[in-house]
Design a protein around this nucleic acid. Structure first.
Lengths: 139, 139
DNA sequence: TTGCGTGCAAAGGTTTTGCATGGCA
DNA sequence: TGCCATGCAAAACCTTTGCACGCAA
């Protein structure tokens, strides 16, 4: 499933760019501009098509910006394992944290066993403030 | 903050309709059609404006449909307390479950204390399959 | 009476699609 | 060679906005 389709230069460059900026999230517009600034002019229609493929393959995930509600995309890497843990996402800086935490795993099991609800870890994100963004007011 | 602005008949009818269907989520399009079917013709521009107000007041919440990625709206009732618990949402039927669960509360505290991440419970939703929808595919 | 709400139409922005061309396997 | 990817332009779609009128307070 991973990286299906042809291995074109455009796809390689986009993955490389997103991977290099994996702590950031990009709207299509901001991605278009950021690529342009690196001399990589890519029509938005191509971005939409590429991003769709990358989301299917699992290398990239689609979120919504907490402020603008715009679709944003972020590299998550080669991560079949993402289906096995929850994620934290900072509403301010966009940072995505893979939550490797026993207690979280227990909660998922508990909710399945006791509340009859089967959580899709890959599709579930807990939003909030990361340490550095929360700390800005109180350091 | 709750129910700010004028108390108009349109707003009352919309709240009543959404409250009556609180287990369902509605896109603007489907809401428009559902209201029409009840003889309540409401222009979409009015729906957008009303829904925005209701989201601000907290009576209604905005999600994204798991399949179509369309903005969908759902009644959550008078719920200042929603800020204090997590939510489960079924990707198939749209049902929203208010997770009153000690273990979940512990996890939120744990993540704050040990992982340095302050979860916004109100803005965080765990997606998955509810009991009845999980049973349908594979019993 | 004053100011917000509503309805209609138009505009704005995002995303999708058609089609011809180019590139990968 | 055959099929998919790309670029460009146009279309479709969702959402917001402007304006005149109506209604709540």
């Amino acid at each position: 499933m991973r990286n299906s389709g042809y291995n074109t230069s455009g796809k390689r460059r986009l993955i490389a760019f997103l991977a290099k900026n994996e702590h950031k999230e990009f709207s299509v517009q901001s991605l278009y501009e950021a690529l342009l600034a690196e001399g990589l002019k890519t029509p938005k229609s191509s971005l939409y098509r590429l991003l769709e493929k990358l989301c299917e393959s699992g290398a990239v995930r689609k979120f919504r910006d907490a402020e603008t509600d715009l679709a944003v995309f972020q590299y998550v890497g080669d991560d079949a394992e993402c289906a096995r843990h929850l994620h934290l996402k900072c509403k301010v800086c966009g940072r995505l944290i893979h939550l490797h935490c026993d207690l979280a795993g227990e909660l998922v099991s508990h909710i399945s066993a006791e509340h009859g609800f089967r959580i899709d870890s890959k599709g579930s994100v807990l939003y909030g403030l990361c340490r550095s963004c929360a700390g800005e007011g109180e350091i």
